[in-house]
Design a protein around this nucleic acid. Structure first.
Length: 357
DNA sequence: GAAGCGTGGGA
DNA sequence: TTCCCAAGCTT
């Protein structure tokens, strides 16, 4: 049975109170239009929503500006060199998003006449757009009523209705409750207001209930334990994996490879490695025979689901030497433009500081 | 349904 | 330090 009543006094009040609060306190974000400017461009909404997946507003800001300046619309992004896009995304993480970003831009340019579909169902067919993003774009860019549920909304809703079933089992109930409080007009503003509320007042820890426009409607506040929601299942322990990265230098240039599209850091330029991944240690075998010098310091890097403890091996080659494989030589002085994932940026920094070269 | 997939910041 | 988490999607 549903935990939440159909549209009643409480659910109707919530939208009105939240929208009134939003009209005064909405955050001014680069991808948002100011009041009175109408709906933001679908391209800008889409780009920001993809970047914001599992990523903080602060981290997205510079990337959003960089991308919209360099690729101002779908056709520009669809025509971009893939390596340029991947390099521009470097450091933002979850690189499958960048691969899907290119696929999606090309699908829009080729299959949809350069226009993003204006419906949730249409948006869901595109690469990198799932249930949350489809609803968010439909509401924010196309002013359609859509039930937008992200981690902020899950937190706010689970507190409003004191939902004690743990996530992820509670997702259907939370969605039902979010549907019940979503208004028929201003769905985009409502969605963004919920997310602003979750990002600020209704925070994970120590929520500012005294500032909350929904305080009087919040069951968790009434119970005195808002921080207890949402209830979550216990997490698994994070393993540590070991591996090696190889720094091969020849006349001021370092040898880089492009990783295969699937898996960790897929599609990104990287240093050669010994095959480490989230499940296994690297085999410690160098890509070719040379007089490798192992650095003393180990690079520790935290991924979401494992810790990597990485050794670094360094060698220098003569001018005529060539390692096997289809990599590329990259000038060390402009390594910052290679678009390396943060892990390998750390490795490069360690090598350059070591003097072993 | 669960696992895989980055990174940086806050407490 | 250590843990948790962020405007999730794909397989």
């Amino acid at each position: 049975m549903p935990h939440v009543q159909p549209a009643d006094q409480k659910t109707g009040d919530i939208a009105a109170l939240l929208l009134a609060h939003y009209d005064v306190h909405a955050r001014d974000l680069p991808w948002r239009n100011r009041p009175g400017e109408g709906l933001p461009a679908p391209y800008h909404v889409w780009l920001s929503e993809i970047m914001l997946q599992q990523t903080t507003v602060a981290a997205v800001g510079p990337y959003s500006r960089k991308f919209t300046e360099r690729w101002p619309d779908f056709s520009a992004l669809a025509a971009a060199d893939e390596a340029d896009v991947m390099a521009a995304w470097a450091g933002l993480g979850y690189y499958a998003r960048a691969r899907n970003l290119i696929k999606c831009a090309r699908a829009v340019a080729v299959g949809h006449g350069g226009q993003l579909p204006a419906t949730e169902a249409g948006l869901l067919t595109l690469p990198g757009i799932g249930p949350y993003t489809a609803a968010a774009i439909a509401a924010i860019a196309f002013d359609q009523r859509a039930v937008v549920v992200d981690a902020n909304v899950e937190r706010v809703v689970s507190r409003l209705f004191a939902i004690s079933i743990p996530l992820p089992a509670a997702k259907p109930i939370i969605r039902e409750a979010a549907d019940a409080i979503t208004p028929g007009i201003r769905a985009g503003d409502f969605a963004q207001a919920m997310m602003d509320l979750g990002a600020g007042i209704c925070s994970v820890k120590a929520p500012s209930c005294m500032l909350c426009p929904l305080q009087s409607h919040c069951d968790a506040f009434g119970l005195g334990n808002p921080e207890a929601y949402p209830v979550k299942a216990a997490k698994k322990a994070k393993p540590t994996r070991r591996g090696t990265a190889y720094w091969v230098e020849r006349e001021g240039e370092v040898y880089l490879v492009t990783r295969q599209d699937k898996g960790m850091l897929g599609g990104m330029r990287s240093l050669p490695d010994d095959g480490w991944n989230s499940r296994t240690n690297g085999d410690g075998k160098a890509p070719f025979t040379a007089s490798w010098q192992h650095l003393d310091n180990i690079v520790q890097h935290e991924f979401t689901h494992f810790t990597l403890s990485l050794r670094i091996a360094v060698t220098a080659l003569g001018s005529d030497a060539n390692p096997p494989g289809g990599g590329m030589w990259w000038p060390v002085k402009s390594l910052d433009k290679a678009g390396l994932p943060t892990l390998f940026t750390k490795v490069a920094k360690a090598v350059l500081a070591s003097g072993e070269r």
